[in-house]
Design a protein around this nucleic acid. Structure first.
Lengths: 339, 339
DNA sequence: ACGCCATCGTGAAACGATTCACACGCTTGC
DNA sequence: GCAAGCGTGTGAATCGTTTCACGATGGCGT
């Protein structure tokens, strides 16, 4: 049996319009009528049909959040923040995963447009923003997450990765380290390039310090381990005394390789280590790892905020860009007793 | 400007019915007409309105997957499997997170019902299944994920946790270990209770072996560490020589505490260790951890499969239950040279 | 007693796609 | 020569909700 407003109205002895009013503006309806209608709803187990409401409204009550990797704690925390903020507005967040695949991204965007979602928060796969332009032309606001200034056309929320890289490097320099290594890649990933650039700038500001880039194909534990093995040898040969890793997975892998190979290298005594992201595993590594933290939930919440703004932004006003500052969380991996 | 079938029809010089046919059964329409309509769609940038279609159809093209923790790799892999299988059917998966909160679970279920999703895959928070009964009564099929036999009323897909616990314990017994510890909790979580039960049964089958339960409030790295500290002392006092952890986070924390405290305990020489879930960090722990693996993506795919079955199941047929067998992945943490 | 306002409610017209009974024009077969 | 059948296409009805112009009712001041 299908229950619609019609049945409810009949049972409560009112018109369908009144049922709708009870649902959406109960204060326009006499209290006893409200009660009667509510009772009928209860008795019949009526559940409003979102599709019908949406059809009438022209827009759904949902936002979409499309991320590069649901498995990454960074994005799940962003999602948490976005959901919380959206809930305040009575909105739901559809969480979707592109897995870094342009095809999956495109297909998700298609679905979202057909759904007429209220807006799209996206951490885009690559440099083709034309589909996003299209969405916006069709009236669906778009906010870029974790990818910012390069795309002035879209509102965005991101973290200053240049500053983050500088923070990491400067911290090592402050600890008296002079020969740094930066581990990360590929450099075409904007975040990685920015972090490296920031670290390089900090080193350049400091007479007598150097930084050397160790590229990686991906930013995983295994790659970290691989680079760590190489570093274990090089440290003694080249005098490297500080390492900045482009993320915590790399840092954890590096630390492990340094500590546990043959002829191990002590952390932080011989080499100080800084990671990036502050994932929970960083704090509970063998030697807890100093890391650069990003305000993840805040990013999500802000993205929703910007989306709401976008929805009512006059065409001639420029989209807004929010850039947060990263924060250094200092732990044992970078603070030698002497330093 | 809003583009609907009407505009497309006008531009192509056909009726709206024909546009719909071009979209849904192109073979019922003359090829040249199809082309004309397709051209009009292209030119106008028409995107079908899912809400309207759904309203007519009475049911959406989406399934919902509600998990306890999107941050947990187990569930993201299940989601991946479900999405892939759903895509084969032209369905979309809505991924949502209850974060173990009954309130969030309930609110998500409300949204799903209003959306008239095609079905709900759920890893439920707790023992109250009445809301799920209700959903089903309203025509929305439900499949339980990772929670099985106790709920014969619902179709389910799960992994045999009793067998998994037994697998872990038996492996330790095979390695010659006799005084085991089981770390995990709270026991009201079905999976934990089952794993403990399985491990206990394996021990009971083996004369001269014992197993001792160490309860935890949650299954995190930190809790693992805490228990590990305690074990480091107890091992020497009580002769514990094998540990089964109810998940890998606990196992990693335990290993760390054993290896790195004052008066460290060697793994696996003094204590052999087995975890559960086989998350990626298990393989790259300091001493790689033996773990019980579950077929995660297969679980997701099977859940979708069962959902499709449910949708067409005669009322008098019993719901189906699929139980997969876990698999032991042996690594260094449990295989002493002498074992 | 009368008009006037509020207060409450009504009911029909959207929203955009799908579906289905039907129509039109042609070929076939008897 | 005519019914039957096929291939194409039409257009109105339908899904369930919201909205809005418009009644109905009753209380108030004059």
């Amino acid at each position: 049996m299908v229950v619609s407003v019609r049945e409810v109205a009949a049972r409560a002895g009112v018109s369908v319009g009144t049922v709708s009013n009870v649902l959406n503006r109960p204060d326009h309806v006499r209290p006893e009528t409200v009660d009667r209608v509510r009772a009928a709803i209860e008795a019949l187990g009526y559940v409003p049909n979102a599709a019908a409401r949406q059809l009438r409204a022209g827009r759904s009550q949902s936002l979409a959040l499309l991320v590069l990797d649901v498995g990454n704690p960074f994005f799940t925390d962003v999602a948490r923040g976005a959901e919380a903020r959206a809930a305040d507005e009575g909105l739901t967040v559809l969480l979707a995963n592109s897995d870094e695949s342009p095809e999956r991204q495109a297909s998700h965007l298609d679905v979202f447009e057909r759904q007429r979602v209220g807006g799209v928060l996206i951490s885009p796969v690559d440099g083709d923003y034309s589909r996003l332009e299209e969405l916006r032309k069709h009236g669906i606001p778009v906010v870029l997450v974790d990818r910012g200034a390069d795309q002035a056309r879209f509102a965005s929320v991101s973290v200053d990765d240049v500053a983050g890289g500088a923070l990491a490097a400067r911290h090592l320099l402050d600890q008296g380290r002079r020969r740094l290594a930066f581990v990360g890649g590929p450099l075409r990933i904007g975040q990685v390039a920015d972090r490296f650039q920031g670290a390089s700038a900090a080193v350049a500001d400091h007479g007598g310090a150097t930084i050397q880039l160790f590229g990686t194909d991906e930013m995983s534990l295994d790659e970290g381990r691989r680079v760590g093995e190489a570093l274990r040898v090089l440290v003694r040969e080249t005098g490297i005394d500080g390492v900045v890793a482009a993320n915590d997975l790399l840092a954890i892998g590096i630390e492990r390789a340094l500590l546990f190979g043959p002829d191990p290298v002590r952390v932080p005594d011989e080499v100080a280590l800084v990671g990036y992201d502050d994932i929970s595993f960083a704090a509970s590594a063998v030697v807890p790892i100093t890391s650069v933290r990003q305000p993840r939930e805040l990013i999500g919440a802000t993205a929703v905020e910007l989306l709401l703004e976008e929805a009512s932004r006059p065409a001639d006003a420029a989209p807004r860009h929010v850039v947060y500052e990263p924060e250094l969380v200092v732990r044992a991996s970078s603070t030698s007793a002497g330093g």
